[in-house]
Simulated assay, not measured.
Amino acid sequence: MPADSAAAGDPAGTGTLPFSARIREASWSRHQGLDPSSEDAADRSPGVFDRLFDGSLSVDDYTRWHAQQFFVYEAIEAAAERYAQDPVAGPFVFGELARRGAIEADLAFLMGPKWRSGIEPLSATRAYVDRIDAACAEGPGGYIAHAYTRYLGDLSGGQAFGKAARRNYGFDGEGASFYSFDGIASPKSFKDEYRSRLDRIDLPREDQDRLVEEILLAYDHNGAVLAELGEGLGKNPFAPKVIAAICHHMNVDHAADTLVICRGVGDRPGAESARMTGFDGEGADFAVLAGGAETAIRVPWAAPLSERAEVRPEIVRLFTESRERLAPDTPES
């Protein structure tokens, strides 16, 4: 089905199709591009969805995917709070759709209580969140576009993701609670009502067209996040739970040492503050605040690491080298 609804069910472009049908026709090709069962899937390397369904996605990579979704829903649901009483967007703000609490519970189950210290948005996720923020700031159509794309997807294909996660990892509730909508008795009826509201939306045709364009952008951003995640599948030898625990320890118990490392071997002598955001077998990642702006830096290990016990000595080495490089300006830890 073509992406342009005017070229299909509405050849004259008269707008006679219901708005929800126009959206579905316009976004069909984007939807198919993300579907592991589509014909296009045979022409690409297995991604997150493919591996989830065939059972080869590790629980660690599943957790990393889940973590990226946290940032997306955090942005959408912050906008939902602002638009709850809006005459146009308000009818599309449903408490029973909210996912952030479920994602937080899943991540606490998967990564432990220090989970927030061990997740950071990928560059594609950051771009996605920036687009959500910008679109929602432009008007109610931006919020509706991003909420529609995510939530109706969760109620549709997302249910298959939940079933696969429970089957693959033995989850019973937490771990895949993101996919459970306990407040919605009938997803089909709910989706029908949602689309009915779209068909009655009080927006001029020009704004409706912009809303459709924003939905296509949302699909593209989601695809970019999945692509970036796909590039890292199976490559980090450290479990997200381990990363979260060590990052939390460095940022809470050794914040001054983290800053020394970033000022020294991180080549950011003017850093005002710093936090460790993650690491893998090749190096550690930090976010450094300098001049009022936060930037990401990466500090390589001296040699590849693969065991948790190897991380602490390497961090001590980085701190020692940094203190020597910065001496005599660095106080004793």
Rank of each mutant, 00 (worst) to 15 (best):
A185S: 15
Y148G: 02
Y194F: 15
H146V: 08
Y194G: 11
A134G: 13
R197K: 15
F190H: 12
E138M: 07
E138I: 01
Y179S: 07
G142V: 00
L152R: 00
R166C: 15
C136T: 04
R197F: 11
A134T: 12
G142Y: 00
A137Q: 14
D182A: 14
Y179P: 06
L152C: 08
N168R: 06
D130Y: 04
S123Y: 05
C136A: 12
L198E: 06
A147Y: 03
G141I: 09
G158Y: 00
H146M: 09
A164M: 04
S177T: 13
I132N: 06
L152Y: 03
E138C: 05
S186A: 09
I132T: 02
S186N: 13
D133Y: 06
S177P: 14
A185M: 14
F178E: 04
G170F: 02
A135F: 03
G175C: 05
R197G: 07
R167C: 03
S186K: 07
A127W: 09
A124M: 03
S180D: 14
S123Q: 11
G141D: 11
S186W: 07
R166G: 11
E174R: 11
G162E: 07
A135K: 06
D182L: 12
R200H: 08
Y128S: 08
C136K: 02
T125N: 08
C136P: 04
F161Q: 10
D133N: 13
S123V: 10
S196G: 15
E193T: 14
A127K: 01
K188A: 12
D182F: 12
R195N: 09
R167L: 13
Y148F: 12
S186P: 05
